[in-house]
Each structure stands twice: as C-alpha cells, then as structure tokens.
Simulated assay, not measured.
Amino acid sequence: MTSYILTKAGHEKVQKIYQENSFSEISKKADLHRTTVSKIIVGNEGVSSKSIKIFSNYVTTNYPFSFEECFDYEECENKSRKIKKSNPVQDTNSPHYIQRLLIEQKIYKSLLSTNYILRIKAPKKMGKTMLINRSLEKLKAKKKYRIVSISFQEADNSHLSELNKLLRWLCANVSSQLELPVKLDDWDNLTKEFGSKVTCNNYFEKYLLPELKCPMVLFLDNLELLRINEI
C-alpha cells in the first residue's frame, strides 16, 4: 500500500496550523483520527492516500494556502521514515544508551512467544522505551510482525479517567495504525449488554486479529498515567 509523507514545504505549512491547534482539535476539524494527524504533522510515518487527501482538503478549505501533491506531500517507499530526534536517548544507536544485551535477548525471545504479556518496570530515564525499540527493530528486521505502538500520553484526560472511553480510544487507535476501518458504531449498545472489557476483547479477537495475516505486537507506553487517573 502506497504511503504519503510531507515534504519540507508541506511540513512548514502544517507547523503554522499546529501552532494554533492541538492534535485533538485538528483531528476533529479534519475528521481524521488523532494518531493519523500526529503521523502527518510529526512526519515520522507515512499515511494512506485517503488520509492525506482528507487532510489536504481540510487545509485548503480552512487556510489561505494550497496543499498539493508533489509540492507539499509525496509518496514514500517505506511506511516509516527515520527522523532526527532531539532526545538522544530515543536514537537506537545513541552513545547515551547503555546496552543490556542479556535483557534485550530475553525481551526478543519473549516477543516471539504467542499470547505473551511482557512488562518492563524501571525508573525514569533508564531507557525503557529505547530498550523496547531495539528489540522491536530486531523483530521487524527478521520476522513478519505488525507492530502497533500506543502511548497513553497521546490520550486526552477524558479518555484516561473513564475505562469505557479509554478502551474505545484504544480500539480506534489500534485500528488506525493497522490502517483498518474503525468499526465502533455498535460500541454503546454492546457495552450495555456485555460491558466495555468484553466488548474491547471481542473487537480484537473477532475483528482486528482475523484481519491480520501475521502476528501483532502491541506496545503500550506511559502506563503510569492510568494509575494517576485512577482507572
């Protein structure tokens, strides 16, 4: 599937929009998922042709400048594009990262297991995210896996403070990253009958996972925010 990413000119235009609006505000106005908006603006991952055209229409309709293919956005060969990050700890080859080969090997082997939950608990600035990223890169290089990365830092406070909203947000977010249609029209009716936990579980088992032709790794970051909001 062809993916699109902003050019330098497009990125400069979008930054003007982002200065006035948050990801959530742009998401609502453009009728795009917040994660998709984040991918477009941050520019570290390509989005589908449909998504970039919806975003382009939003820009040209609401702002006094054009937003066109080739000049403002272009096809990218790979879905992901490596960008230079300001935080050196996030760079997989950063000299600031202390390698923990035995732990990395253990994580990698765990990720190869079926129906496995892996939890990494350590102090801040230890490099947990970097540790996982190194293992995920190794996994992507050698195996056919779909990797979905969810950071609860991207969720609104309203999502973090109510379980039903959080699980619905999670389902929508994962669907978006897998580039699958978000099928949550019956969510409210189903949660009344089965509860939000069962409904979320069924969404994954009966819809998302059967759509995939390879295993999926779901990476959840900033879990401490759930405890802060007492879900």
Score class of each variant (00 low, 15 high):
T60M: 11
N57Y: 10
F65N: 06
T61L: 09
E69Q: 12
F65T: 05
E69P: 05
N62W: 06
K82N: 08
R81T: 10
S80D: 06
S80L: 12
V59C: 02
Y73M: 04
I52F: 04
N62F: 05
Y63I: 04
F67M: 05
S80T: 14
Y63Q: 03
T61D: 07
K53P: 01
I52T: 02
F65L: 07
R81D: 04
I52E: 00
E75D: 15
Y58E: 00
F55S: 00
I54L: 14
E69D: 10
E69R: 10
C76N: 14
F67K: 00
F71K: 15
F71S: 14
I52N: 00
E77R: 13
Y58R: 05
E68F: 06
K53F: 08
P64I: 07
N62Q: 07
F55Q: 02
P64W: 10
K79R: 15
K79L: 12
C70Q: 12
E74H: 07
S51E: 14
N57D: 11
F67T: 02
P64S: 09
F65M: 08
S56H: 02
D72T: 04
P64C: 08
Y58F: 14
P64H: 08
T60A: 05
D72K: 00
S80M: 11
Y63E: 01
E75K: 15
S80N: 13
Y63D: 03
S66Q: 12
E77K: 15
I83D: 06
C70T: 13
S80R: 14
R81E: 10
E75L: 14
I54C: 05
S56D: 00
N78T: 15
T60S: 11
I54G: 00
R81L: 11
Y58L: 06
E68I: 09
V59D: 00
V59K: 02
C76E: 08
Y58M: 06
K82R: 12
F71P: 04
C70R: 12
I52Q: 02
Y73G: 00
C70K: 13
V59A: 00
S51R: 03
T60V: 10
E68T: 12
T60R: 09
I52V: 09
E69W: 04
S80I: 09
R81Y: 08
I52D: 01
S51H: 10
E68C: 07
I54Y: 06
E74M: 09
R81I: 13
P64K: 06
